[in-house]
Design a protein around this nucleic acid. Structure first.
Lengths: 339, 339
DNA sequence: GTGAAAGCGCTAACAT
DNA sequence: ATGTTAGCGCTTTCAC
């Protein structure tokens, strides 16, 4: 059977199509009686308004674009994947669809923008993770609301859902301090990245609070992308010039796993010889041995918040810039231990 | 500036909107001259047809739904993620959008179907990986073309893009045989899963061809989901009752990584003591040590093929069922070695 | 080879 | 409180 239209509903409920429309939009001046009649007809016919027709008149598409780099999407640890799922769930509540597209992290002049932008087929967009600033510039020209998640271009007023990385960095470091560790290494990648930078600042702040001095030799931020292999390499470098490190704070779980791999390879026991803590909580509890202590980041929730935010920006048409900071928490598993 | 419409193009090219439409659809009976005029105007105005308007009259949405379970989407190894990326790339060629949604692997009566189905907002759908058969039944009622990827319900005539798992299973096993291994274990999960079952059949076939007898004790298919932890557990079981295994064929890379983890934990060297081969090629070369030998599955390509297939099914309106088998190839890295 | 016009399903302004 | 109607941007007959 063909899809029922608003006409069919009107006929079934014995009212005009305008009335049906008013009921759908919850207009006040409709009697309870007719409202119920219409609602019943809608249910009976299993009617769903046509998005095309709606879009045509309302000049809204009902779509939200979700943009991230190939790299981020294909990451072993499902960080952005979970954020995406959050947006998808929340989109359901808002009757929106999400169009996911990936772009090259080497985006440069002349590369084409996502189709849904060119075709103006989204009402707003969510940009997840670090993307090339050139892309952001291009996208900004389109006068389509943007919400950033987990990354935002500096020096710009934008809407963003961000992690409290500073606090997380402090929590992780304080945890190690409280366990009695004195020589705590920090392993990060791409210290230019605001998130990693903040985690590092948290590390420094925590040491300061504990009246412990900062030791440059305990810090490695030479690696670029915070992936397992780079955690491995960073650990190799830092442990070859320091023999007395008892704990490592890796800027994310991926690097932490790499660190653990290296330490195992050189015969160290975790956490008996060395404590290791990560950040993000993306490594499932039993996929690494020992289970990794970390800072939990509420990834789904970030997606949900981002979708809520973009949804309200689209609806209200206001050009407000809002920043949402999500909380993190310490998760103690078995990769950290009292000295 | 507002989005240009077909009217703007018509005005700029000094023709009627009907002519513009004909040009866009590459209608034959249009003079080269006017065609060029119109094309120029389109470019000059940066015109893109409105999907809403098109959808309204053509009764097509231009959307394809992509359905998979939460579990599969969140897998550590980006298998389905890559398939999705393939569909997204190919969608661009076909001027389609992909709506990705995840469903619960415990889908049961009363759970609601993806919104894009209820609202009839997709012209076709791609179902990736194993999903509950109840869901498939429900979806089948909607008279929307479906293409399955990497899994299909048995006993049904459907369109599917599948991996040549049997051949892959043979390749993997033959590789180990050629290296001189005699005691080759097979570790799988969920032997009911057609893919795993076929890989297992490939294993048996290869042994047969090599005139090697099948040894039940070398086979473990007790684990459920083929994840790292289950590979670890299966290895533990099988190695505790067999002391002379020299090689392992794990039904996928995730389990292979788990196997390697276990073997390292009990002090074995890979590949010196034991050779291990996986399947899928989803573990990046330097994220596991040693780099894993495996059977490469062309994941992107599967996504591309699936999108091509669903796209043609949607266009042609034919109810043809087509099966596409993609090729696999042996990738020898460093986790396998001559006995 | 090109144009005029109807109509897709819906919203919203205006009538009643 | 409810109905009538114009029109959103496009495709597609049917004229010319």
């Amino acid at each position: 059977m063909a899809n029922p239209t608003i006409k069919d509903v009107a006929k079934a409920a014995n009212v005009s199509i305008a009335t049906v429309s008013l009921v759908i939009h919850n207009h006040k001046r409709i009697s309870m009686e007719t409202k119920q009649k219409v609602l019943d007809a809608i249910t009976a016919l299993n009617y769903h308004p046509s998005r095309s027709a709606r879009g045509l008149v309302s000049r809204k598409t009902g779509n939200i674009g979700f943009i991230l780099t190939h790299d981020h999407f294909l990451r072993t640890e499902p960080f952005y994947t979970q954020i995406f799922m959050g947006t998808e769930f929340e989109a359901r509540e808002n009757e929106l669809y999400v169009l996911l597209t990936t772009i090259d992290s080497n985006f440069h002049e002349g590369d084409s923008l996502p189709r849904f932008i060119l075709e103006r087929n989204v009402d707003g967009m969510i940009i997840a993770g670090k993307v090339p600033s050139l892309l952001i510039d291009k996208l900004s020209n389109y006068n389509i609301p943007i919400v950033f998640v987990d990354y935002s271009p500096s020096n710009k007023k934008v809407s963003i859902v961000a992690v409290d990385n500073l606090h997380g960095g402090m929590l992780a470091t304080q945890h190690l301090v409280e366990l009695g560790h004195k020589k705590i290494a920090f392993i990060g990648g791409d210290i230019e990245h605001p998130s990693i930078n903040d985690r590092f600042n948290g590390y420094k702040l925590a040491l300061e609070k504990a009246s412990m001095s900062l030791n440059e030799r305990l810090i490695n931020t030479e690696e670029d992308y915070p992936a397992r292999i780079n955690g491995y390499n960073a650990a190799k470098k830092i442990f070859s010039i320091n023999k007395d490190i008892s704990a490592v704070f890796a800027c994310n779980d991926a690097m932490a796993v790499g660190v653990i791999q290296y330490l195992k390879d050189i015969g160290k026991q975790i956490p008996n010889d060395i404590s290791v803590i990560g950040f993000d909580d993306v490594v499932s509890e039993n996929s690494v041995n020992p289970p990794l202590s970390t800072i939990r980041v509420p990834k789904m929730e970030m997606g949900v918040e981002a979708m809520r935010l973009i949804s309200s920006l689209v609806k209200d048409h206001k050009k407000i810039h809002k920043k949402i900071l999500v909380n993190v928490e310490l998760v103690v598993r078995q990769s950290t231990k009292k000295l």
